[in-house]
Every structure is written in C-alpha cells, then in structure tokens.
Write a protein that binds this DNA or RNA. Structure first.
Lengths: 219, 219
DNA sequence: AAAGTAATTTAGAGGGATCTAAACTTAGGG
DNA sequence: CCCTAAGTTTAGATCCCTCTAAATTACTTT
C-alpha cells in the first residue's frame, strides 16, 4: 500500500517521463514543490519497493509495477475530473486541485462504479485520455479542426504545418498544444471556423488554418 | 487547517459526547483504535488549538470551534454516503469506509455543489440527520412505524412502550434503536405490518407492536 | 481513610515526510 | 584535460502521529 505522497511522486515521475528519457531529481523537486534533498530520500524508498529504477546521480524511470500504479492514479484523477465537470458543474479549469485530493481515495469498487456512472469516458475535461481499469490508455481519435462539428469541443494535439510563420500566427492567437477549443460557428461561404480557445478568447480562423490543426474531440 | 487525524479525533469526540458528559481518554482510544497514550498527546494539541476543553484526568468536551469543525466533517461524511448509495448504487452498509476517506476532502465549493446535486438531503442512508452548511442539525420528523407507508424506509429512533416483555420481544426480532426498517406490506385485515430489518430479515409485527415503535423516515 | 485498581499522563523512541547545510558527482568550458 | 558550476546526495534536525513502559492521579472498596 502506497502513501499519498508516494503516489504523488510516482505520478510526477510518470508525467515527466517523455520519450523514455530518465527523469531527473531536480525536475521532480520542481513539480512536487519540494527540495531535491527530499526527492533523493523518496527515490531511495521507491527504489527499495521496486516502483522505480534508480542509479544515484543518473535519474529514474518507472518499473512495470510503478507504471501500473501511476496509471491507476491518473485514471482516478481524470475520472473525478469528469465527475466534477459533468455532474457538479465545475468549470474545466477549476477541478485540478480537488481531483488531486480525490485521486487518493482507496477503493477499487468505487472507481469502477464511478466509471460506469460517468458512462465510461475515454477522456477528461481537458481532453486527456483516461486509462481503463487495466491501465491501458485509449487511442484517442484525431481529426482536423476543420472537420470538427459546430459546438464540438476538442483538445489541440499537434499541427500538420510546421513553418515558423504558421506557428507564430497560432502563437499570436493563443493556440498551442493542449489548448481547449470549441467550435462555435462555421461560415458556410468560405468554411472558416469561429472558435473559443480555453473557454475565453473567441476568434475566427480560415479553413486553410483549421486544416492544419490536429485535435482530439472531447465527448 | 486541521490534519485528517485531528479531524478524526474531533469527530470521535463529537460522537462520544452524549448528554453533555465529558468524554474520557479511554473511550476515544477505543473508537480510534489507538492507545490512550496517543490520545493524551492529541488532546494536548487540540486543546492548545482551542478545539476542546481539556483538564488532565478529567476528560474533554468540544469548544464551539471544535463542534463547528466536527459538524462539518459529519456533514461531509453523510453527504458522501448519500452520493454513494443514491448515485453509485452502493448498499447502505458498504459505504462507511469510503465515506471515512471522502469526508476529509477539502473544498467548501465541492460540498455545496454535491449537496445541490443530491437535492439537499436531510438524512443519510442510515437515517442519520445531515447538518446544513451552517452546522445546524435538521429536526427529523418522527412517526410511528404503524404510520409508515408501504415501501417507506425509516430508522428506528426509540420505543413508546418500555416493558421488559416488549423490549425482549423486539430483541428477539432483531429490532433495536438504529435499525433500518422498510415496510414491505401492510395487511388490510388487522393492519399488521410486514417489514425488512437491516435489509436482511423479513418479518411481520402486529399493529399493536408497530404503534409502539418510533421511526424517522428516510427520504 | 488506606489500599488496591483502573484510568490517564509522561518519557522516550520510531517511521514518514520534510527541511537546511554540507559534501559529493557529473559534465561542459576554457 | 582539468576545474568549476550545476545537479544530486548525505547528514542532521524538525514535525506529526504512533507506540511501549513507567509514573501519576482518581476512584472504589472495604
């Protein structure tokens, strides 16, 4: 049985593990808001319990066991976020703190019941995928922003065009990977798209631009 | 800000405070599953923070501040129990452990939203009253078991008749204060009542008996 | 009212999580 | 290729909660 803190460390390591690179002590201390010294202590403990591979001064990575654990925490966090937004009418940007607490509630049965109650969602309100009970990440279907129906919400996953001009333009609009977008209207005349970014800014982009933005619909 | 443990102690003291008598160290250690020594330590701390009145060797009682705190925890616990039973289809006797964890989630807003989502219930699945946001306990309406409609659920609150014969009879039936009862049928001929006790045993009691059992309906 | 027993508190210690300060390792720049 | 700066670990301490064992207080019983 893991303590809340141990779960948080494992989750942090999971989120910091991009492209199989080893995760550094300082990076962990930053996201956890602790000192590197505290992280070192904890890494030793997690290594003893075989949740991570750890070589002094070389950074860490999750073992199979650690990854399984991390995915369960992520699953719980994201399911609770869906609950807060869908059922309790929270805004998608208000739910993180509360889900940070709820994710540590221990009860397998509770999570399965919650999952059913929420109709087994595959992504959370931010558009992030929800691992299933076995810890498998669903493959999110991706479409072009130009293909999203009116009132459809989605999360920006990437761009098809990579020219500096295009990227700078998106930057100016405030659109980046991870942005939440909602199509509010589509102009029939030229297929340009009116959308809301991160629930705040409303703007119009041309069909040409929309065709180059990959998004993942949020049910 | 209270720790989970402090909240649990305060809640325990609250539940042990019947008829204004002082609560003893041993009693607390028993319900908390700790040693009296641990309790003594904690009492000193809670006293320093003015949640309790505490004189060595004399037992403790809650201050205004402590009582307010206790009622908030009780409110959260009972609201979550309603959620688990009403929304996630748990059985009323499976929810306590999980609610013990959920009651410590910190977010005023969450609890108010949950309360609304559940249609502001006044009692939990066990029939215990739910304090409102100000910490006021609702006065539960009490009726006689003989007056409860068919399919009505209620909690046994007390008896009108106190003769040993009557009490022994109830004992044999497995009916006591706190029992959950559900009226499954009423015989028109003699108004005797068929009921289920604690979701398990089904039995029939005469109208005469039903007239002497006070119950509080669970919505 | 004294003695014995039960309840309670204190003393001392340990595990978990954190910190600061100091020591150590790694890697990049001169 | 060495040296320094950045990154990391160790040492030593603190806070929270718990324990066991010993000391103290309160209560009961004769």
């Amino acid at each position: 049985m893991l303590t809340n803190t141990e779960e948080n460390y494992i989750k942090a390591i999971y989120h910091l593990s991009v492209d199989n690179k080893t995760v550094r002590t300082n990076a962990i201390s930053e996201v956890m808001n602790t000192t590197p010294a505290s992280v070192s202590d904890m890494l030793k403990k997690l290594s003893d319990k075989s949740y991570i591979y750890y070589e002094k001064y070389q950074g860490v990575s999750l073992t199979k066991k650690g990854k399984t654990e991390a995915l369960q925490v992520v699953r719980k966090h994201r399911l609770w976020e869906v609950f807060l937004v869908e059922k309790l009418n929270f805004n998608w940007d208000e739910v993180h703190e509360i889900a940070e607490q709820l994710e540590h509630i221990q009860s397998k049965l509770l999570i399965e019941r919650l999952d059913d109650f929420l109709d087994n969602p595959t992504s959370d309100p931010h558009g992030d995928p929800i691992p299933n009970a076995k810890g498998e990440m669903p493959v999110l279907r991706q479409v072009l922003l130009s293909e999203l129906e009116v009132n459809g919400k989605a999360k920006v996953m990437g761009m098809k065009e990579h020219s500096p001009a295009f990227l700078q333009y998106l930057d100016k609009l405030g659109i980046s990977i991870g942005s939440a977008v909602k199509v509010t209207d589509r102009v029939v005349f030229d297929a340009s798209v009116e959308l809301k970014v991160n629930d705040k800014k409303t703007m119009v982009v041309s069909h040409e631009v929309a065709k180059n933005i990959l998004v993942s619909p949020i049910d």
